[in-house]
Design a protein around this nucleic acid. Sequence first.
RNA 1: GCCUCUGUAGCUUAAUGGAUAAAGCACUGGUCUUCGGAACCAGUAAUGGGGGUUCGAUUCCCUCCAGAGGCACCA
Length: 581
Amino acid sequence: MIKEQLKQLVASALTKLKITEPDIVVEYPLHSEFGDYATNIALKLSKTLKKNPITLAEEIVAAIPSSPLIAHMEVATPGFINFTIHTSTLIHYLDEVKLKNTQFGHTDTLQKKKVMIEYTDPNPFKEFHIGHLYSNIVGESLARLYEAIGAHVERACYQGDVGLHVAKSLWGMNHFMKEESVDVAHLEALPLEERVKFMGRAYAYGAKMYEENDDAKHAMHELNKKIYEHDASIYDLYKTGRTWSLEYFNTIYKKLGTTFNHHFFESEVGNEGIKYVKENLKKGIFKESKGAIIFEGEQYGLHTRVFINSLGLPTYEAKDLALAPTKYNTFAYDVSIIVTGNEINDYFKVVLKALELINPLLRAKTVHLSHGMVRLPEGKMSSRSGNIITGEWLIGEATEKARDIIKKTTKTQLSSNGKEHDHEQHVLAEKVALAAIRYALLKNTIGKNVEFDFNESISFDGNSGPYLQYTYVRCMSVLQKQISPETKMSTYAPNEEEIALLRYIPKFQEIILAAALNKAPNLISTFLFEFAALFNLFYQKHSILNTSDETKTFRLKLTAAVAQILKNGLYLLGIETVEKM
RNA sequence: GCCUCUGUAGCUUAAUGGAUAAAGCACUGGUCUUCGGAACCAGUAAUGGGGGUUCGAUUCCCUCCAGAGGCACCA
């Protein structure tokens, strides 16, 4: 990596000057007239060394060993050292990218380290809402980023198939079945989608009655206990509803292109959770209070939470606690990342504190990464009030919008016609729609809340997923007319727009590394957008095919490199490229 | 009430303590005898208020204001 090589050059210069500084930062300057890379090392050191930063920078520049990498070095006020990379070095990278090199940009930085990523985590008996979609998109991108830097990643999904929400839903199902005189067989005959809607409605009603009616609330507590105990009076309905939900979720995962290595269920870790908590009750980590077993977080600046309730049932806390060793036993991870919404940040701090006291080693391997909540303009999204956006609704709306645009685009020619054509168009529209949705969520910093408005948020032009797909299509369209030659470039003097593109190529690898280590997919989005914009500018100003042979060779190679980097980069965001759109 | 997070152009957002705060949308004006116009170029416009630390603060600290989330027997 150029960045690393520059760091080493600076390091050797410092050694020569007898300066020790372990932390050398090489960054990308804000403006291209400041060169390709820059370091603030002289500014940092000037205070401790009591030297004028400019003088110091000049000394460092003089001490940097000569390298074929660097074309030009410059000291700029207030004391930056700017590096300009040799164009021949940049051109050399063109031969590395090549079309179909899906590995370009990857490194083995993590050397097969085992990383488990838990994400999506929808709850059976409830809807798959936009928050789950967000979690899925973030988690999948993270998984791909870690794979790109050499980790062995396993994907996990943790689903809440027991707990009070299930009792609420089952109570509601019983209520509606009675009221509407339908039985399970009746429901079974309905399409999956209808059955899931029925459960969603049941949950909303159960949750409402739980708040409003004490008898109903009591009945749900009883039902909850029965579910845990596999009581015959409810178990069949429970099993059936659970199966419907899981089937439904599978159709969504398929659409989203996520394949989980592990499915964990709350029902599987409940008993383990109780055991775990009770063992540690004796050690004084937990405390009995009002018939429940609690963890007092106040002594650590947190708050108290119930791990086993007064009915003797494990809460989410106990189950989450037991989940860590359960995961570890199936996959002995080095790092365990859990992706959730940020509304449970404080909750998670408590659980992780308890885990730290019980199993500090596992705690040290665990990272909680929270994404922001998706907020609707009208206010909070809540499955209790029914004021929610489901993942499917969003994908459906976006697909319709994409299809409208495709229909207007005269250039789009699909290979088939008739019914097959409709299908092909739908598949294409869905890919574009998913690109728009994914990009909209991943272009921002993870962790901040997202204000969601369909027309504003799901964009198809400008800084958007479809814009990147479109740029790829443009490249491929050119390359379809004439393939990129294998000949190596030796002497070619690139123009301004070409240099701008060239300098982004070695950056790609560096950005992937930074994005993975910082768990920041938005670095990839920003990089790809800037890169694609540079290509479109180049494309606008210069002809690729109508030029001299040498120039054409270079430009075809450049176009192939751009296409491949866009493809590889979009993959990291979970976005598929298309050949036509 | 207590704890946590967030306040950047009209809107949605970028910016490992660094240089002239970067984009998209919207608006205004422009490009093109299209290698695919979901394109390209230009213009207007911003760090919530007040202190502090620092050579340097959108970034760190304090305070005020505004919004969001959370505060035992939900997940």
